[in-house]
């Protein structure tokens, strides 16, 4: 099933005001992998994610989803296959009811109504949020919003799930539930986050980005044990690995 790979090669991007965001960025992700994308604020994580489904187009270099580089022609196919969950669920849930939001993708893909409905119900069931279907997004809790936001992309049956800061703004219990939920998905996953504990739970592999470049790419545990590397990239050991002060 090698067609599920993501291949980013020599990606460069400079913002309209001249600030360089990404420089010579390359990596490959294989089918079924779950990859943590970590780095300081402004390292370029979000800009990179926007390239993965063609919200931004590379200024130079290529981004391949499956075997094809993303172009304006195949953009709709790419967007169906890459389920992008943005950081703020309020941006993701823009419709009057949760149901409409989950149905938005499938309807835009031109699926018949009956299929859309069954997909919506299935997607909401996967995130245990069936009861939210007819609620307006501004009347549900932060954790529920996150679950609903994930359902909005699951309804398109994506091959690849991309999540931007999935645990931000969640209380500890909701965060734990989210981790449990994501663990159950077999999708290829890319998770951009500052929450390194979450990465430890969910991702066997980690890519570290600094100033628009990949500075480390390897097994999560190996990277997190390398304190010098973390320090150089404005990161910190996950709390769980810092050990209890009482041990000293």
């Amino acid at each position: 099933m090698s067609h599920h790979i993501v291949e980013v090669k020599d990606l460069e991007y400079v913002y309209p005001d001249g600030t360089p965001a990404l420089k010579d960025l390359s990596f490959t992700i294989l089918h079924g992998e779950s990859v943590g994308l970590v780095g300081a604020n402004g390292a370029g994580k979000s800009t990179l994610l926007l390239h993965l489904n063609g919200c931004l187009f590379p200024q130079s270099g290529t981004v391949r989803i499956g075997h094809f580089p993303i172009t304006r022609k195949n953009i709709n196919d790419v967007r169906r296959r890459v389920g992008m969950v943005f950081q703020d669920p309020d941006d993701q849930l823009f419709m009057p009811r949760v149901f409409d939001d989950v149905a938005f993708g499938p309807l835009n893909l031109g699926m018949p109504r009956e299929e859309v409905k069954s997909r919506v119900i299935e997607a909401l069931r996967l995130v245990s949020a069936e009861h939210l279907a007819y609620r307006p997004p501004y009347k549900i809790s932060g954790g529920e919003k996150r679950a609903a936001a994930i359902a909005t992309v699951l309804s398109m049956s994506p091959d690849l799930l991309v999540l931007d800061e999935p645990s931000s703004g969640l209380d500890p219990k909701s965060r734990r539930q989210l981790i449990g939920l994501l663990k159950n998905f077999n999708h290829t996953k890319i998770i951009a986050t500052h929450d390194l504990d979450l990465v430890m739970d969910l991702c066997e592999r980690t890519i570290v980005i600094n100033a628009g470049r990949v500075t480390a790419d390897g097994p999560t545990m190996k990277i997190f044990r390398n304190e010098a590397l973390l320090e150089a990239n404005r990161l910190e050991k996950p709390l769980r690995m810092q050990g209890c002060p009482a041990d000293h």
Binding site: F94, D100, F104, N108, K117, V153, M156
Partner: peptide, 14 residues
């Protein structure tokens, strides 16, 4: 978020 889910000008409501 809209274009990521295939928005091409139509906001569909069932």
């Amino acid at each position: 978020a809209m274009v990521s889910r295939g928005f091409r000008g139509d906001v569909p409501l069932i």
